[in-house]
Amino acid sequence: MAEKRCYTVKDLQEMLDVSRSTVYKLLRQNEFRWIQLEGGGYRISKKSFDEWLDKGNASVTS
């Protein structure tokens, strides 16, 4: 099976142990690259998110 190239909002919730609204706040702040699907779902670039997280200067508040 191929490695994922994107994450879902639920993926980020679980990885960061934050609320759904906190993930949406990060999306609005353009902390990393994402797209909105026609049905309303979001997909977050794995590479962009992983780079943001690896920088270590990420500030997340629930």
Rank of each mutant, 00 (worst) to 15 (best):
M1V: 07
M1P: 12
M1K: 09
M1S: 12
M1E: 14
M1R: 11
A2R: 13
A2H: 12
E3C: 11
E3F: 05
E3W: 08
E3P: 08
C6R: 09
C6Q: 11
C6M: 08
Y7V: 03
T8N: 04
T8I: 09
T8L: 02
V9S: 06
V9K: 05
V9Y: 06
K10D: 13
K10S: 12
K10V: 04
D11C: 05
D11M: 04
L12D: 01
L12T: 03
L12S: 01
Q13W: 05
Q13A: 00
E14N: 10
E14M: 05
E14W: 06
E14H: 04
M15A: 08
M15D: 01
M15E: 04
L16R: 07
D17H: 14
D17M: 12
V18Y: 06
V18H: 07
V18K: 07
S19Y: 10
S19F: 07
S19M: 11
R20K: 14
S21V: 12
T22I: 00
T22Q: 13
T22M: 05
T22E: 04
V23R: 02
V23Q: 05
V23E: 10
V23H: 13
Y24T: 07
Y24C: 01
Y24N: 10
K25Y: 08
K25F: 10
L26H: 10
L26P: 11
L26Y: 09
L27H: 02
R28F: 00
R28H: 15
R28Y: 15
R28C: 02
Q29G: 00
Q29Y: 10
Q29W: 01
N30T: 05
N30G: 05
N30F: 06
N30Y: 13
E31R: 15
E31P: 00
F32Q: 02
F32G: 01
R33H: 07
R33A: 11
W34V: 03
W34N: 15
I35M: 04
I35D: 06
Q36L: 01
Q36M: 11
Q36D: 03
L37M: 14
L37V: 01
E38W: 07
E38M: 06
E38K: 13
E38S: 12
E38I: 06
G39E: 14
G39M: 00
G40D: 13
G41W: 10
Y42R: 11
Y42H: 14
R43L: 02
R43G: 05
I44Y: 07
S45D: 15
S45K: 04
S45P: 03
K46T: 11
K46Q: 11
K46R: 14
K46I: 09
K47V: 12
K47L: 09
S48M: 05
S48P: 02
S48Y: 03
F49Q: 01
F49D: 03
F49N: 01
F49V: 04
D50P: 05
E51A: 14
E51W: 03
W52T: 11
W52N: 04
L53T: 00
L53E: 08
L53G: 04
D54T: 04
D54H: 10
K55C: 10
K55W: 15
K55Y: 09
N57P: 06
N57F: 08
N57H: 14
A58R: 15
A58G: 15
V60Y: 13
V60G: 08
T61L: 04
T61Q: 12
S62Y: 09
S62M: 09
